[in-house]
Design a protein around this nucleic acid. Sequence first.
DNA 1: CGAATTTTGATTTTGATTGTCAATATCAAT
DNA 2: ATTGATATTGACAATCAAAATCAAAATTCG
Lengths: 142, 142
Amino acid sequence: MNETKTLRQYLRHRGLKVTQQREEIAQIFLGSKRHISAEQLHQQIREIYPKVGLSTVYRTLKLLVEAGLASQRRLGERITRFEPVAGDEHHDHFICINCGAIIEFENQDLEDLQEEVAKKHKFTILRHNLELYGYCQKCRRR
Amino acid sequence: MNETKTLRQYLRHRGLKVTQQREEIAQIFLGSKRHISAEQLHQQIREIYPKVGLSTVYRTLKLLVEAGLASQRRLGERITRFEPVAGDEHHDHFICINCGAIIEFENQDLEDLQEEVAKKHKFTILRHNLELYGYCQKCRRR
DNA sequence: CGAATTTTGATTTTGATTGTCAATATCAAT
DNA sequence: ATTGATATTGACAATCAAAATCAAAATTCG
């Protein structure tokens, strides 16, 4: 498996250690079905490697994300925010991962395109959430 | 303020009571800046109505969302899920609010359009998260 | 008003995630 | 292979937002 190598490379590159647990967790995770939570993964791992702790699963998942081998839904934000609904127009958000700024924008084409895709999949959209993470104008330079 | 009426209507319609706290919370919330958290709102409310409890703020925000007067970022999902990154292709998600199914899809036009909008706002996208909430094919009928 | 019902708010509980720390494992240099 | 410096582990505790609890208070409507 090539991804195991990627992980090892990443670890060495950062001066981190290639441990048995990290390899076990990566192995199970990479072969797992999609959208798995840390705890689900922990369950699965325990069936084969009963000694691996939940904390280590969390820590290793973080490493996998950093190594580009995992993607994480629910980025940043850990609390729920609310906003008054002014008119009827919906807006989406840029979120700067450097300074935390939230920039709103609207784009009807984007909304239309979403509806089109939904129709293709026979899905009825009631609401949506689009978050674009990156650097705002100010934080672009580094 | 018209929105206050909307809330009253909504409450009566559901056989709920129009209470002082609900009106106070709605008043402050509707006049507040965007992206406020339950706790931030609670602080603001306390400055004027010191007796309102945090629980009531949470409960009232829920009602405001149901009444269509507030929108809530970070819908559904309360846990973080991870998935292996197979290739380089990104995908987005439909999430059924009835059965919880997560349906993946890819659409390059959507990605391109996002990039275009970002360019307009001088924002550099590193990653994004698009969640379309609604009913899947099975749950459409009701 | 007064009874029936809902709501409130102080507090506790929940549940996911992160922090702590002594014991253990890894790795580079002997 | 052994050592020593350093990183990691796993059990457990701590955090933190959000939900649940429940007796006291407020609201509604006849």
